[in-house]
Design a binder for these strands. Structure first.
Lengths: 121, 121
DNA sequence: TCTACAATTCGCCATACATCGAAATGTAAT
DNA sequence: ATTACATTTCGATGTATGGCGAATTGTAGA
């Protein structure tokens, strides 16, 4: 029950749901999610910790960068079904499509460049 | 997205999840849920309002009594899948089984009798 | 009409959570 | 070694949420 509630709580924030949907296209760097959601780095980092604690996303660290991806096939059925449910329920949402569009643009920018831009404003 | 978040928020409280699982056996009166969860009537009523707003349960009023049941087949797929997910994830939980046992006993008591007992404490 | 009563709504309190900026962490480059 | 920098952790603040008791609502019976 605790694990289940960790998932439902993780899913009960719009920003975190948007993150999960954005990760459908493959792993993303934290700075890319910061740009997408327009939130403070500390806030996004906290969101990722919550998603990770719930088992919904996995982390890969490479140098200074942190890449997050959706939980894989080996994840517990409870988690897999949660992710499927999210995608089927809000994957075609207006907000989700807008994010998809913006994400394409964000991915065009080099990561290093993107981080610089974030600092300036 | 708003409807989806209404569901995830509704599901992110243990008491409300227990209520949904208890309703698997068919509709229940509010006083029966009060007894099962050992919460104040006002609290249970609020929980039911949240579940109803999310579309997860339906209400039937009969005289002074209010009966709640799980959303039916005609409910949106998002809701149906949520309920299926809940049942499959925590339906066999220890807490859920204990509730099932206690619910059997509660259902043996006449509703009028049960309400009287609740007043006394 | 008046009373009893199941359920709901309201007002209040304590706790949990989202957010931010500042400080800390750890890695890469100079 | 030192600096630069992506990310995380920490501390503070405002808002949301769960809980209760009191007051309200609406229905059934006296």
């Amino acid at each position: 029950m605790k694990e289940f509630l960790a998932i439902t709580k993780a899913l009960s924030d719009e920003g975190r749901v948007r993150i999960l949907l954005a990760l459908r296209g493959g792993e993303l760097c934290v700075c890319q999610l910061i740009e997408l959601l327009a939130l403070a780095p500390s806030t996004v980092s906290r969101h990722m910790a919550i998603l990770r604690q719930a088992g919904l996303v996995e982390l890969r660290k490479e140098g200074r960068w942190a890449y997050y991806r959706l939980a894989g096939e080996e994840a517990p059925p409870m988690v897999r079904r949660a992710l499927d449910w999210v995608v089927e329920s809000v994957g075609r949402n207006a907000r989700a499509q807008e994010d998809r569009r913006r994400l394409k643009e964000i991915l065009r920018i080099d990561k290093e460049e993107l981080c610089k831009l974030l600092k300036e404003g």
